[in-house]
Design a protein around this nucleic acid. Structure first.
Length: 364
RNA sequence: GGGGGUGUAGUUAAGUUGGUUAUAACGCCGGCCUGUCACGCCGGAGGCCGCGGGUUCAAGUCCCGUCGCUCCCG
């Protein structure tokens, strides 16, 4: 199912065979929480060569609900996306909606942010929902441990997530769909190692590194990522959840990560921050008001090939919906192009130069 | 011509029986965003309180004059 073709240092070039096709790795997965990558349609995603997108268990279960998904035979047919889908289990919502949920051994008890009704997300229900959605890869239910946390707190949280991981594995019924375990343990390497052992003892089709990019210092994130990669199995894909910036991607791939998802390109695009070959651009800045040239001269996306930066800025300032779409299109193109460049660098054995280049570009 | 209303930030407005540094929204300028409660969040700049005079320890606030806008009646 997962094959590595070539390595450069710890970086790996490979591919994953999934129910709806093959994805090349390293890969970046655009986030489409409620069944759409905000502002885009599937045709756009095909055009920018997205290979796999994300959906979210918690959000899709609340709305539209499993009755609708069953009626349409799964998420793929419902949203008209015929390539692979990965769904997150709702573990991040345990973290991000902490104010309106309680957690115990059984699962996470939420009060819906939509209509206030109560629901309990258990490991078993998370798997049932995701198998109904028919996601090519589904994630075990975990608790994304907040930061900072005491050692004892991190240990208790991780150990419960590991018990939940086993329950998820036991609840799995569809062999054609992949299930990934999630490593927790906060910033503590011995806990991370215990978590890796617990998960590999169970055995999953892939392993994710969770509980990072939750406010910890960047060196901690780098250290824990490298540590986890060094101890995870060589023959399974490694997925760094929720990360990250362009530099995070480059650095993490160099440390051995194969898969990423992040709202950054889509959300920042909608909020006016763009990623370009020359660094970040804040489209609101007045200095772009009269710019005839494109947002990024080196970008081949529709937005950059067609429009001046001045016009894009005008659309954004005027709060035109079109601006959000054009900027999302650009940022995702940038991310997928970056992934393409990284793959080429691994193939040609020049990852370390690429890492240096991006450190220079983004650290300033 | 007579009577009423109203002039406060770029705009629309708030401003207590006169009492610290005149407030808000929008706009403008800048920053932030990492398994999406997110077209969001945070910060900053910006004022001859129409103008002139008076009362008072103290006036955006009270009085007089004046100018502009506006409504009603002739």
């Amino acid at each position: 199912m997962f094959t590595v073709h070539k390595t450069d240092g710890s970086a790996r070039l490979g591919q994953i065979q999934l129910a709806h096709g093959v994805v090349q790795t390293p890969i970046f997965m655009p986030v489409g929480t409620v069944g759409s990558v905000k502002t885009l349609v599937p045709q756009d995603l095909h055009d920018i060569k997205a290979e796999i997108i994300l959906g979210n268990t918690y959000h899709l279960y609340l709305r539209p609900g499993l009755d609708v998904i069953r009626e349409f035979g799964g998420l793929h047919d419902f949203i008209q996306w015929n390539k692979p889908i990965l769904t997150d289990s709702g573990g991040y919502q345990i973290f991000s909606l902490a104010g309106q949920r309680k957690i115990d051994e059984k699962g996470a008890h939420f009060q819906s942010h939509i209509d206030g009704r109560k629901l309990t997300l258990t490991p078993e229900l998370a798997v049932e929902i995701q198998e109904t959605l028919g996601s090519d890869i589904h994630m075990v239910l975990d608790e994304c441990t907040p930061h900072p946390v005491t050692y004892e707190g991190a240990k208790a949280s991780m150990e419960r997530s590991m018990r939940w991981a086993l329950r998820c594995r036991e609840a799995k019924t569809r062999p054609e769909l992949a299930q990934f375990g999630i490593v927790q343990g906060s910033m503590f390497e011995d806990l991370r190692l215990q978590s890796i052992h617990a998960l590999t003892d169970i055995g999953f089709e892939g392993y994710a590194i969770g509980g990072l990019s939750v406010g910890e210092p960047k060196p901690d994130m780098r250290r824990v990522t490298a540590f986890a990669c060094a101890h995870l199995p060589q023959d399974k894909p490694r997925y760094l959840m929720g990360v990250g910036t362009p530099l995070d991607l480059v650095e993490s791939i160099y440390a051995g990560v194969d898969m990423f998802d992040c709202v950054m390109p889509t959300r920042n695009g909608r909020n006016g921050t763009l990623f370009t070959s020359k660094g970040r651009v804040n489209i609101k800045n007045q200095r772009h008001k009269l710019e005839h040239g494109p947002l990024d001269e080196e970008c081949a996306c529709y937005t950059c090939k067609t429009f001046s930066l001045a016009y894009l800025r005008h659309l954004f300032m005027a709060q035109e919906f079109t601006a959000l779409r054009l900027l999302t299109l650009h940022n995702l193109t940038y991310y997928l192009r970056l992934i393409h460049d990284i793959r080429a660098a691994i193939a040609e054995g020049r990852m370390s130069q690429l890492v240096d280049h991006h450190r220079q570009l983004w650290d300033s």
